[in-house]
Design a protein around this nucleic acid. Structure first.
Lengths: 151, 151
DNA sequence: TTCCATTGGTTCAAATTCGAATCACTTGCT
DNA sequence: AGCAAGTGATTCGAATTTGAACCAATGGAA
């Protein structure tokens, strides 16, 4: 059992910044979405991913992976969105077990209305706080971090 | 109502990286702590903050602010830790309403055992993936993001 | 064809989180 | 001293999250 390599000052600052920024940004955006669109962040993300997908539909498991959430969690949230008519389920033609989550016209409509305010909030708390150089480093570095954890 | 300024490619990459890395890192560390120390990440953070504080104790509200969590959430988690003997509560001498959360010897002990593995995991998923330059940018940029949201 | 390990999704119970309400104490002001 | 407003913490109920168990249905391999 080696002596552990503790974090030096810079490493600690990076780690703490990562934690604090992550927490605070999440909180703020959660608030913003709830207030302005009546959606939780997970719900908003579901709508965004569906809107981006061809046909506005994605298989449940695939969607759960993209959202980095559990399958059961997704089942729950899609249920919530379905109750509100923003999403519906469609059986998969080629696999009886499969289910597509499909964005409804109402869902697309709501998203259209919610997106501008959300993007503005993302700019305010993160994007517009940094310069291009910093954004580039963030994109590369955090992209690499995420990529490694994907496998 | 202006035309919203959407995110360009770089901004989108930074934002997505931030979201994905945040999610995946959180998940991984949650897992690591649960497996190796029987603690959730919020619980671990409570112990760390207490261990850093003079006397190993912090007032509840103050602690909640540092942890970026709700007061009620903290009440719950401190209750959990208290049940396990890792933390105890102490009445504040100067304010009857006040409560200190105090790290017990058992808590300090557990933390001592848990910290090396946790730090190693933090290195593996984040710190050691980046070079010094990137760490410096991360620390500065995310530090600024967090600071601004503190108000 | 016949198995059997996988896969896709939901259901379930347990744990956690939050905000609003509550309650008692403090503080600042007059 | 006497109040009104604010503070510190807990309690409560509602919403969410997770992993494990489950139930079909799939898809190779023998």
């Amino acid at each position: 059992m080696n002596e552990p390599r503790w974090l030096d000052e810079l490493e600690m600052a990076a780690w703490q910044g990562f934690l604090e920024a992550g927490n605070r940004v999440a909180r703020r955006l959660e608030q913003q979405l709830k207030d302005e669109a009546g959606l939780s962040h997970p719900q908003y993300e579901i709508l965004v991913h569906l809107a981006d997908a061809p046909g506005g539909e994605i298989r449940m498991t695939e969607l759960a992976e993209r959202l980095i959430t559990s399958k059961s969690g997704l089942t729950y949230q899609v249920g919530q969105l379905e109750r509100r008519g923003l999403v519906r389920r469609r059986a998969c033609p080629t696999d009886v077990r499969g289910v597509f989550a499909v964005l409804t016209e109402e869902g697309r409509e709501l998203l259209r209305g919610a997106a501008p305010g959300h993007v503005a909030a993302v700019r305010e708390v993160l994007i517009d706080v940094l310069d291009r150089e910093e954004l580039a480093v963030l994109a590369r570095a955090l992209g690499e971090v995420g990529r490694r954890l994907r496998d």
